[in-house]
Amino acid sequence: MTEDVIILSIETSCDETACSIVRNGNDILSNVVISQIESHKRFGGVVPEVASRHHVESITMVIEETMAQADLKPADLTAVAVTEGPGLIGALLVGINAAKAFSFAHDLPLIPVHHIAGHIYANQLEEELKFPLVALIVSGGHTELIYMKDHLSFEVMGETRDDAVGESYDKVARVIGLPYPGGPYIDRLSSEGEDTFNFPRPYLEPGSYDFSFSGLKSSVINTLHNYKQKDIEVNTADVAQSFQQSVVDVLTKKTMDAVAGCDVNQLIVAGGVAANKGLRSKFEELCDVKNIQLSIPALKYCTDNAAMIGAAAYHLYKKKHFAALDLNGRNYIDIEEIAY
């Protein structure tokens, strides 16, 4: 019998202070997330300095709670994993230094994990990954289409050239008077509206899997501005539905094109925006027709969490991909860099 690999992982790349213990890459022994969202709401978005301050306030408590929930001692652990990047640098540094101090104190190997790899591996907490696969990662900070032919092999097919999709949701939500974070509010409101505005679908040049949502966002803002000047009342539910339809059309079209071109066994959609009902149902419909296995992790593993970092770290542990104590945070890391 092979020995269990029990990894404590820490994730602080944005506005969640998270820690988790995962056994053998898929068995969650504990999973603690402290969200700062209530604090950032007043600013209408995540403020990096405020996020960093909250992380340092709660980091040791979160680790202690994670150990207590799993009912484990440090001696039971195999390794410590931490999100190395990408993310808000000041926020990342809190998690990284806590992870380094913990690994030093307990003589545990330290595993640096790419945040996007974590989002993809979140799926492993519920079912095995089936290669080759295509993953669409959509969140407040990321919009990426990734091809994986095997574990830890990442090929970026496309990514955003400007705003992340979640960011566009936040900005559109603000102009139609919805609270932060915009995604869930627009999603909810859109179900009461119709696509009457027919906003542009930014497909970019033919064959490109890149994304660009800032033009769409501007189009929404300009349209609303015009209506306001002409004193015409707009139905915000129609705006929400029209915007969402454009986003969903572009995300699903590009993703399905990518899937069709790669002969894959699985499509993974993850990240906070994967919780979007409009996006989920469109993917479900399309994958059903094309007979493609669609996997969308449960909401709590779609938004930022540390269990997903532990899931990815399991494979890095097996490859002995360890960092020394001079590990530093990086606000941008090319995911292809860590491929084997």
Binding site: E49, R53, I63, L93, A101, A105
Partner: peptide, 19 residues
């Protein structure tokens, strides 16, 4: 420096907690 102080405090807190 906000970041500098935070790094020292984070390392110290986590070390004190762990040890």
């Amino acid at each position: 420096s906000y970041t500098g102080v935070r790094i020292g405090v984070t390392a110290a807190k986590t070390l004190a907690f762990s040890l």
